Amino acid sequence: MPNKSLDSFIFDRTRTLLLDWPIRFEIIVGIARGMLYLHQDSRLRVIHRDLKTSNILLDEEMNPKISDFGLAKIFGGKETEACTGRIVGTYGYMAPEYALDGFFSTKSDVFSFGVVLLEILSGKKNTGFYQSKQISSLLGHAWKLWTENKLLDLMDPSLCETCNENEFIKCAVIGLLCVQDEPSDRPTMSNVLFMLDIEAASMPIPTQPTFFVKKHLSSSASSSSKPDIGQFESSYQEGR
């Protein structure tokens, strides 16, 4: 793809200026449509298992294309979930039930989408994020801002002049809904697309994500074995 991958823009302090809010919003919608196709509209259901910003390619018009299906699982019929003893994927984007128990489903892809969405909004990586001893992930930071009614503080500074604040808050809430701890609490991709078209006030209230990746885990590190639960932390703060 002529514009390479999404991560080469949003994590680069110079190139991120090329992604104004309308472009980012269209990228978010495009990724959601692509995931809906994989989960629902394709002849065979596809669970990607490694959705991340580096696997989102951008064409000459900055349209997103989901790539790298090397870890994908294909299901026929009405199957939507499975379990494996071999955990593969990228830390920081894995859903907790997959990283800890090997359980994956369309909802584990939804979790990964939520992480990607919050990274697009903030211009920051989920892993390698560090603000304080209490907050060591982008998810934790986003949740704290939600509890303080300060979601606009999540915004990538390069978006200040072009951002539609209502759309931004709506996308941030969708991101938090997607990374909820319980798979059953997360929306489907069809629900995500529906919420992208409605007012934020009409959306469900997210519950706290409890799967925060610690700073020492690399966002590019992949694992072929089940990680130690001690590598992960939970932060319990009172929501609003």
Rank of each mutant, 00 (worst) to 15 (best):
L193A: 08
G230L: 01
N191D: 11
E199Y: 09
L217E: 04
P206C: 15
S225P: 04
K226R: 13
D228H: 10
T188H: 03
F211A: 14
M203S: 07
T210L: 09
A201R: 05
S202D: 05
L193K: 03
I198F: 05
K226F: 12
T210R: 06
P204F: 11
I198L: 02
I198M: 06
F232E: 00
S220W: 05
T207L: 10
P206V: 15
M189V: 00
F232G: 02
M203Y: 06
K214Q: 12
A221G: 07
Q231A: 12
N191E: 14
S220D: 14
F212M: 10
P227G: 12
I198T: 15
T188Y: 02
F232N: 01
S235Q: 08
S223C: 13
T210V: 10
F211W: 14
S224P: 08
T207I: 06
L193I: 14
A201T: 13
M203G: 08
G230F: 02
K226V: 13
L196D: 07
L196E: 05
Q231K: 02
V192G: 06
T188S: 13
I198R: 01
T207M: 04
S234M: 08
H216G: 03
S190V: 08
F232S: 01
S225E: 10
V213I: 04
L196V: 08
S222E: 06
S223N: 02
G230M: 03
V213T: 12
A221S: 12
V192K: 01
K214F: 00
T188E: 00
L196W: 04
M189I: 00
F211G: 12
F212R: 10
I205Y: 07
F232R: 00
S224W: 15
